[in-house]
Design a protein around this nucleic acid. Structure first.
Lengths: 111, 111
DNA sequence: GTCACATACAACCATATGGTTGTATCTATG
DNA sequence: CATAGATACAACCATATGGTTGTATGTGAC
């Protein structure tokens, strides 16, 4: 299973309410696939697919526990996405700062 | 044009490198659609579609400037996505804290 | 070893997405 | 108003996505 932690897959995986909810529940890492599937109004196989998408994105991992496989959220993948959004935020602030400087400079010139 | 700022659309829009790059460039709000399209190795219409996706997600807006329409990133949409990821992070930390408390409690009992 | 439970996966269908080309509309300028 | 530039949008195609049902595999309990 490829889990290279790329932004495309992570954002795509997070673009679905069911999958975001699975990520939330899997923060506790207590439920297997059957338990998780029970929360949603769709087939077991559908949830399996959603989990597979999350797994390929590196957002969750599965650990064997007896006859079950417990799904656990990988917080690092979430942090990668957050880090990217932080960069945009930082660049945005930088832009504002430059504009402020520019205005200050214009006023300087006007005097 | 519907621009309800929902997480599904925002994450889906961010799940493409070309669109993320457009969001970056549009932080400066200096380029029109033609100028933006010039940066990428695909047709003008393809970039128009990407911008439409970003627009539907509320990630960018267009403002008329003479015969052009300048594309500008809407930082609030980015913040919404970041806020969601922050929540996951917070819940994750809460979980760790609860585990730590539990361990502390067990040790208390043992004495 | 057999049975039941948990998981995996293939085949199929409908719809969405990402690209193309072509045509139409809007706006500024001579 | 004629023309050129900037944008919009429809039609089309290939592939991806999200769901279904059905079948197969793996693991623990008896």
């Amino acid at each position: 299973m490829t889990t290279v932690l790329d932004a495309d897959r992570i954002f795509a995986a997070m673009a679905d309410a069911t999958r975001r909810d699975i990520v939330l529940r899997a923060l506790d890492a207590r439920e297997g696939v059957v338990e998780l599937a029970a929360h949603y109004p769709m087939s077991f196989a559908a949830i399996q697919k959603h989990i597979a998408v999350l797994e390929r994105a590196g957002l969750v991992t599965k650990e064997r526990d007896g006859r079950r496989k417990v799904v656990r959220t990988n917080i690092d993948a979430l942090r990668l996405a957050r880090g990217l959004l932080d960069e945009y935020e930082a660049l945005w602030r930088g832009r504002i700062d430059r504009m402020t400087d520019l205005i200050a400079y214009s006023k300087e010139i006007e005097r």
